[in-house]
Design a protein around this nucleic acid. Structure first.
Lengths: 122, 122
DNA sequence: AGTTGTATTCTACAACTGTAAAATAAGGAG
DNA sequence: CTCCTTATTTTACAGTTGTAGAATACAACT
């Protein structure tokens, strides 16, 4: 039961909106927040699939559905980050950061911020 | 032409072996290095798909094929890391590292190593 | 209560993935 | 040169994902 699997991109995008909302949401809320221009039925279908996977629960409120997260964001991010790090960098965090920095994905300022985080974390 | 897309997990696993070999490889080499116990035809199929995608090139040497990487590992890792960071952490590197540290995926030692990397990177 | 509008659920379908058996092709043994 | 081995290529097929039209259901209005 406990096996949280990786979500497909589209469902992840929706799940992120739910998580970041910090409370129960409606499909209208999701539609508003989405950058994509998916058809309503498309979004509803993704929501349904997320329920099937156990990532969301769904209760009816009048003619609308109310969705709420059943998997904790931290847990999901943790799992995905671990497997990402493992698959692409053989588990080397420094390797990942080096790649991001050398590839100019993160700036010197972001590295500074990261350094402060590390210094505080001890 | 330049659009490198994300590889499916299985193909990525094979691609990592090719990249890490630092030279042209045969399917036998791949088979040896693999942790999975895929059938030979399965591996060959993945190799063929990687050729179709333009990640590998394939030349014949007698009855064997020789494969070599056509996409640079750094480029692929850079792209994937950026999109991963964006999708899961809204682009926040510190967020990612915090999640890994709080989730006990990386140790204090690894953070120290990372700090040294940051200090040298300036 | 019957009709209408629209949110939700079903159904559909093509493309992509994981996996490998069947078919083919070509080097090497006799 | 012919046959056997075995690496490679084809074909197959079920499950997943992206995407949305059709069908349904139900609140609201007359």
């Amino acid at each position: 039961m406990n096996d949280i699997k990786r979500l497909p991109d589209s469902e992840l995008e929706i799940m992120m909106i739910v998580w970041d909302a910090k409370e129960k949401v409606t499909s209208d809320f999701i539609m508003e927040k989405l950058s994509k221009s998916w058809a309503r039925t498309t979004v509803l279908n993704f929501l349904a699939r997320l329920c099937d996977r156990g990532f969301l629960s769904c209760t009816k409120k009048g003619r609308h559905n109310i969705y709420s997260a059943q998997v904790k964001k931290e847990d999901y991010l943790k799992r995905e980050s671990r497997s990402f790090l493992q698959k692409l960098y053989h588990g080397s965090l420094t390797g990942l950061v080096a790649s991001l920095y050398d590839g100019k994905i993160v700036s010197k300022e972001e590295l500074e911020e990261l350094k402060r985080f590390i210094e505080e974390a001890e």
